[in-house]
Amino acid sequence: MLIPWQELPPETLDNLIESFVLREGTDYGEHERSLKDKVADVKRQLQNGEAVLIWSELHETVNIMPRSQFRDSPD
């Protein structure tokens, strides 16, 4: 289920994004980026529609994924 990120309190959204960034463990190449920068990047992707916030009823978890990978179907 798609979660409208705009309806979340800012602190909750920041916490969800931070948790996502920390669990992804993405390698950013030669230059390490700060947590603050990574969170800002994901927030920007949500704001411009490149990424979406998803609730999985099956797993009772929230995830962030590229809009192109989201399919609106039951878990």
Rank of each mutant, 00 (worst) to 15 (best):
Y28W: 13
L22K: 08
L13V: 00
S56L: 07
R44I: 02
I17K: 03
H59K: 15
G29F: 00
L53P: 10
Q69L: 10
L13G: 03
G29S: 01
R33S: 08
Q69F: 07
D41T: 07
V21M: 00
K36G: 06
A40E: 07
F20R: 01
E11S: 07
K36C: 09
N15F: 03
E11D: 06
K38F: 07
L22S: 05
P74W: 02
L13K: 00
E32N: 11
D75K: 05
K43G: 01
D41A: 10
K43A: 09
V39I: 02
E32T: 11
L46Q: 06
T61V: 14
K36F: 12
D27T: 08
E24V: 10
V21H: 00
E30P: 11
A40C: 01
M65H: 01
L2K: 12
R23V: 06
T61F: 07
R23W: 08
I64M: 09
L22C: 11
N15P: 05
V52L: 03
I3L: 07
S19I: 03
A51Q: 13
R67S: 06
L46H: 03
W55G: 04
G25V: 06
E24F: 10
I54E: 12
E24S: 13
P74R: 06
N63F: 15
D75V: 03
A40T: 00
V21A: 02
D27Y: 09
L53Q: 03
P74N: 08
R67I: 09
R33F: 08
V52A: 02
R44C: 06
L58D: 14
I64R: 10
N63C: 14
V62T: 13
V39C: 01
I3R: 08
V52C: 04
D75I: 01
P4L: 01
S19M: 06
R33K: 12
A51H: 14
T12F: 04
D27I: 02
M1R: 11
R23T: 14
E60V: 13
E60Y: 14
L22V: 04
R33N: 07
D14K: 15
V39L: 02
T12V: 09
D14E: 11
T61K: 09
E57F: 05
G29A: 03
H59S: 15
K38T: 08
L53I: 05
L8E: 04
R71V: 15
E60S: 13
V39N: 00
E57N: 11
R67K: 15
Q69M: 14
E50T: 15
K36T: 12
I64S: 01
E11I: 10
K36H: 11
S73E: 15
L16D: 01
E60L: 13
R23A: 14
H59T: 15
Q6V: 06
Q45R: 04
M65V: 02
D75M: 02
L35D: 01
L16K: 00
Q6A: 04
R67Y: 08
E57P: 08
D14T: 14
D41R: 11
V52I: 03
D14R: 12
R67M: 13
V42D: 03
Q6H: 03
K36L: 09
Q6D: 07
M1P: 07
S34Q: 02
V42M: 08
P10K: 01
I17Q: 05
P4C: 10
A40W: 01
E11P: 07
R44M: 02
